[in-house]
Design a binder for these strands. Structure first.
Lengths: 214, 214
DNA sequence: CAAAAGCTAGCGAACGTTAGCTTGTTTATA
DNA sequence: TATAAACAAGCTAACGTTCGCTAGCTTTTG
């Protein structure tokens, strides 16, 4: 509910961009890119090896020269997604001034921008992780937990300083996290808003939510 | 990202409850209930007719005495989910006093409670709608749009009255909607919080997000 | 000439679905 | 009331398709 695309598509975006430097050259990269599109639009289970391969311009069997299984392709995408997300949050936080309000804005902005700039990657990372066997999922969940901790620590510090006032820190984090998560489903570059504009507004929302009245 | 279950499951809840009066008696109801569990946990594509049937205690073919296709089962679940959600939002709004802040609290509470009380139904309604053929999805999307309009109208009215102040009404709605949506993924009754407690906190968050400083 | 990357062919399993049968219960009629 | 017709709800068996994946061969390329 609430601002999914007008059609029954899972997300509004159409671009299959991967963060610079994360996609291998050649067919390996194309396989990643086309898998990303199909996993995002149809879900991992509904996207077949033959679908993916035909978009790359090869036969299904040839895909196994590049990846040992379909699950490995998904795991690689989810890894890229989670690592990029964590890296952005951490870098933003490190670059932020010691002011806890500035830190909050930095992590929220990074969180939102990651989901607006790489919507397909975000949708796949979040909605298809459950399709991975546990041994693939475990290290990825660890990255996820690190990202959560980053934001939770900022909120906790603000509360300790008396800058933030909330009935429940955990609920505040889930609320702020959810706001950004959902952006990946409805954002499209031709909506007239840049990721930065959305991120700014959501950073304001997050600050207000935490009781900052400035 | 952010407060999914610790495992790689799609949601934390285990109950397959449907709203009172929405599930048929007998096998038809059991099929709905078991389909709900499997669609929520594994996704529509990964849940097979034989899986569903064996949980009901019948053979796959026997399922077709009750529903004409797998898609019809999903469509029925999504319909129940969307109608229950809309009904709760509308009833809450009708019962609320004319004060726009009270109205906001009412719709946010209804939105959150629906997702906490029927987490599997919410996850399936929101995450599996894309798996339906378009002719099934269209009327369901109409219900969804009605629910969005309910909340958007409250926000718009508050802004017109000068009670709410936001840079962008649409962004405020997506943010508030997303907060509640996500509850379905992490909520479990043994978290020590009741749906009402979460709803109260989220209603406070929503009011703050809209610039209410009280 | 060797390695990388493609191909065809096909395996076994699982998929949604249909056909046709059995069984038990309800309903209408002689 | 007894019987027959109709129905409901399950079953087995199987259809045709698609699935992920493998084996083994050919082509391209450095």
């Amino acid at each position: 509910m609430f601002s999914t695309p007008a059609s029954h598509r899972r997300l509004a975006a159409v671009g299959t961009d991967l963060p610079p430097g994360t996609a291998p050259d050649g067919s390996r990269g194309q396989i990643l890119s086309e898998s990303l599109r199909l996993f995002a639009e149809q879900g991992y289970g509904a996207a077949s090896i033959r679908d993916i391969a035909s978009r790359v311009g090869i036969k299904g069997a040839s895909l196994y020269s590049h990846y040992p299984s379909k699950a490995h392709v998904l795991a690689e995408l989810v890894r890229i997604g989670h690592e990029e997300h964590f890296r952005r949050m951490r870098d933003a936080l490190l670059a932020a001034q010691p002011d806890v309000q500035v830190q909050l804005a930095a992590v929220v902005r990074a969180h939102v921008c990651a989901h607006a700039e790489y919507p397909m990657l975000a949708v796949v990372s979040n909605s298809e992780l459950h399709a991975l066997p546990e041994e693939f999922a475990t290290p990825l969940l660890a990255i996820r937990r690190q990202s959560e901790t980053l934001m939770l620590d900022v909120i906790q510090r603000g509360v300790n300083l008396g800058v933030f006032k909330v009935p429940d820190i955990q609920l505040a984090m889930t609320a702020i996290g959810a706001m950004g998560l959902r952006v990946a489903h409805w954002y499209t570059p031709d909506s007239g808003k840049t990721p930065e504009q959305i991120a700014d507004t959501y950073a304001l929302f997050a600050a207000r939510l935490l009781g900052v009245t400035a």
